[in-house]
Design a protein around this nucleic acid. Structure first.
Lengths: 333, 333
DNA sequence: ATGAAAGCGCTAACAT
DNA sequence: ATGTTAGCGCTTTCAT
């Protein structure tokens, strides 16, 4: 492997000069600069990252903590974040964490081992030590799509968004509305909370059984959830609110298999507006999270924290938008 | 940040001893070992990765080169690979590369800067320097889902698989069959090749216009492709073969919008068997790639190359399987 | 079994 | 403008 010394030797100069050139510093004669650049190009020299990061005591990389089973919304989100981060000059290191204590522990250990410039959390870690460490180490952090007290956050008002989604169903005349959500993360509970609130405000008597909580927010679990609901309620409902689009997709599959038409017999609204929502048959009505804005704000906020400008601890709440497509319809009367 | 010296000082021992303990080496009295472990736990010490990787001259991480617009098949694939890699003790660094020269150049520079133990390519880089570098640097590499001469590869016989997919359509009585593929990567051309071969073997006269090549293998481009095909051929066809499931999803969307029923009017077969294929309405008939097997073999092959056991340069071809669901049907006559 | 010391590749402070 | 030097945190000889 060609090192800075090799370049220095070939150029008949010192490593310091080479370093200055490579890092675009001043105080180098343009003759030497050119010569060095030439040799760098010839040899394909690239500075060893480990060495740089050791002396600089930073890694120029930010970590993204994300569930190992990340869904499509999260997939789209982290792509956007990654792109912005790159434009700010950071590399990205992913920490895929499973939904168990051991995995979180491992993630924390790795986090310590890397001298990260900052971390973005798209996944709500349960282990409190995690947050404590980041606080103590004064590691710049921003939480995206959820909020943990004491850290800057970028997200949507989940409860209000859910309420509005349910209100859409209500405005269509639906009264027997069911919901599939998850209890794994705060957003699942918040979305369920919004659901209950909307019903309460419409004077629909509270029934715990209207919402089923499943373990993951995937299409597969959407099927499980829908089957459970069918068991509980029979066909005595005309609308369904799913806490994610993927849950909705699984639920619609079951509904179809049971011979219940969407939106003919049941109106369905999802949440997130993932890419395929618009291709489904029927096209899915869903509560859109402003993906690009959230991604941009997340990356930018972290960058600001790292560079020290505007270190204020802020919670950024973004507007959501109901996208009405074909999976919802006014209740026939 | 707590370093090895801090631990040594607190324990009243030398950094060398601490290093030995932390790395589980022999030749340390169990008294000292225990004491050190205790302090490590107390302080939450984790060795600095940059420093380790500098002296060891390796990073314990393998790079995964993947398109920045990775599709769902690739998403599922890299998750599996990542999991295996982790079980072998590697960290994973992702290189998201765009479909342009500049991005590939940047990727190569980063590749050089990291002292990677190996790299897995899920993306077919065009720049030949890329492969040259890996050869020269003697970097262990395995290409997954495609084959580049001179490197071990794990993949499926694309051409044969496509032929079989088309044969399924043929066996159902279809003769006017169209295809949407892409020309971006080898697999797209191979799948188109298989398509043409199957038709040729069924004595269907060759017509270049039967296949449209789009830029990306996404649902969005599936729509573009289908519209183009409709323009070219009108409704004069009864079946469609899409080079990926996502392409199929977009195409079906357009077909539906045009009032053409799947599979009533048009039978559709996709490729990959991504997760949602089974949830679509109709459930998608598709050519399944053995995701888990490919992922496992990829990770294992790289691990073997790195550790030197079985360094033989092999091409591993895995069996595919046609999954017949609801989007294909015998031609009514 | 343990410690002292060298060195991995780089940058920055300090000379010159 | 340029070179010399020290040192980042770690592992690994080489002594003892």
């Amino acid at each position: 492997m060609v090192s800075i010394k090799d370049i220095a030797k070939r150029a008949g100069m010192s490593p310091a000069t080479v370093s200055r050139v490579v890092n675009g510093k001043k105080h180098v004669s343009s003759a030497k600069r050119e010569r060095i650049l030439e040799i760098v190009k010839e040899t394909g020299y690239v500075p060893n990252k480990a060495a740089r990061s050791m002396v600089l005591r930073r890694s120029f990389t930010v970590g993204i903590v994300i569930p190992d089973t990340f869904n499509m919304f999260q997939r789209q989100l982290f792509s956007i974040i990654e792109r912005y981060l790159e434009s700010f000059g950071y590399h990205t290191l992913f920490f895929f964490v499973k939904f168990d204590d051991q995995s979180e522990e491992m993630c924390l250990a790795r986090l310590k081992a890397e001298k990260l410039d900052g971390v973005i959390m798209i996944h709500e870690i349960k282990n409190i030590n995690f947050y404590n460490y980041m606080k103590e180490a004064e590691l710049p952090v921003v939480t995206s799509t959820f909020h943990f007290p004491g850290f800057p956050a970028v997200h949507v008002n989940e409860e209000q968004a859910s309420k509005d989604a349910v209100n859409h169903l209500l405005s269509l005349g639906h009264r027997r509305i069911l919901m599939i959500s998850g209890d794994g993360f705060t957003f699942g509970r918040q979305r369920a909370e919004g659901f209950f609130q909307a019903l309460a405000e419409a004077d629909i008597p509270w029934e715990e059984n209207r919402v089923v909580f499943v373990r993951h927010y995937t299409a597969e679990f959407g099927m499980y959830g829908m089957r459970e609901l069918l068991l509980r309620e029979g066909r005595n409902f005309t609308a369904l609110f799913a806490a994610t689009d993927e849950l909705a997709i699984g639920a619609i599959r079951v509904l179809n298999d049971e011979g219940m038409k969407v939106p003919g017999d049941v109106s369905v609204v999802g949440f997130d507006d993932i890419d395929i929502a618009q291709y489904m048959a029927p096209r899915l009505t869903t509560m859109r999270q402003p993906l690009s804005e959230i991604g941009e704000a997340t990356a930018l906020t972290l960058h600001r924290k790292i560079t020290g400008e505007n270190g204020s601890m802020v919670e950024q709440i973004f507007p959501y938008k109901l996208i009405i497509r074909e999976s919802t319809r006014a209740l026939a009367r």
